[in-house]
């Protein structure tokens, strides 16, 4: 028993060590960036947010604030791109949804986000939680399930509880799978250039199929050298230079 307790303590300490910790410098930088924004120094504010992100800080609200700074600067494309990045972390944030909608309305092409597929309709909750939340939920459910399994060894009448928890656990795993699939399949791109010509091939002299403008949302379906294959719908697709698009 002593050995088991020691092992458990080791696990807890390991987990604690791997959890993200607050860094006072990071928070100071956030305060500074927010202050610049409040003083309407939007460019400096955006630069401060960008430098935090470059340092490896990944936070939905950081992307959201950065999006706001860009939209104040008139860079709708960068704003939409950062709002979409923020959705990965704070998918249920109403302010984010409102600002993203506003930003799309400011674009010339006014292309809305692609509709949810069948899998997303079935597992609708998967889009309302970020990946970390789904992981924590699954880990918690996993822990409860194994505890229930242990208890079931002593109290066989807990068989129903055990089976129910197993179903929930499997559902949680599938939800994580759906989330991973979504993020790998649906790669959204945002036009950052003021105007981009979508070509029929990966060459500047290829036929221009159609034009997109800053902030237009496209689905990135392929990459070759410095060219990205983008798709608007079932019929309209083509190639754009990689540097004209933010993903």
């Amino acid at each position: 028993m002593k050995n088991a307790f020691a092992f458990f303590l080791f696990i807890v300490l390991t987990l604690s060590a791997s959890l993200p910790t607050e860094a006072s410098d990071y928070l100071n930088d956030v305060v500074r960036a927010n202050g610049l924004y409040a003083e309407k120094h939007y460019a400096e504010s955006a630069q401060a947010y960008e430098s935090l992100i470059k340092k490896g800080m990944q936070n939905g609200y950081l992307y959201y604030n950065l999006g706001n700074a860009y939209i104040r600067m008139g860079r709708t494309g960068s704003a939409i791109l950062n709002y979409i990045r923020a959705r990965k972390w704070i998918p249920r944030d109403e302010n984010l949804e409102a600002n993203l909608k506003f930003a799309i309305q400011q674009t010339r092409d006014k292309i809305e986000l692609p509709p949810a597929g069948t899998l997303n309709v079935l597992f609708f909750w998967a889009n309302d939680f970020n990946f970390n939340e789904l992981i924590v939920f699954a880990i918690s459910l996993n822990f409860i399930f194994w505890v229930s399994l242990t208890l079931w060894m002593c109290f066989p009448s807990l068989k129903v509880v055990r089976n129910a928890l197993l179903c929930f656990l499997l559902l949680a795993f599938v939800s994580i799978g759906v989330k991973i699939k979504n993020e790998s399949d649906l790669k959204l791109g945002v036009v950052l250039a003021e105007n981009v010509e979508v070509k029929s091939g990966r060459a500047e002299d290829a036929v221009t199929l159609f034009q997109l403008h800053e902030g237009a949302l496209v689905t990135v379906t392929g990459k070759h050298d410095s060219w990205l294959e983008v798709r608007l719908n079932d019929e309209q697709k083509g190639w754009v230079p990689q540097n004209s698009l933010g993903t």
């Binding site: 993200p20 990071y26 956030v30 924004y37 990944q58 936070n59 609200y61 604030n65 706001n68 930003a103």
Partner: peptide, 16 residues
């Protein structure tokens, strides 16, 4: 647009 977030507890890093 709606305003930026300033509550510091929200900025706790969400790294994977």
């Amino acid at each position: 647009i709606l305003p930026i977030y300033t509550e510091l507890d929200k900025f706790k890093s969400d790294g994977s």
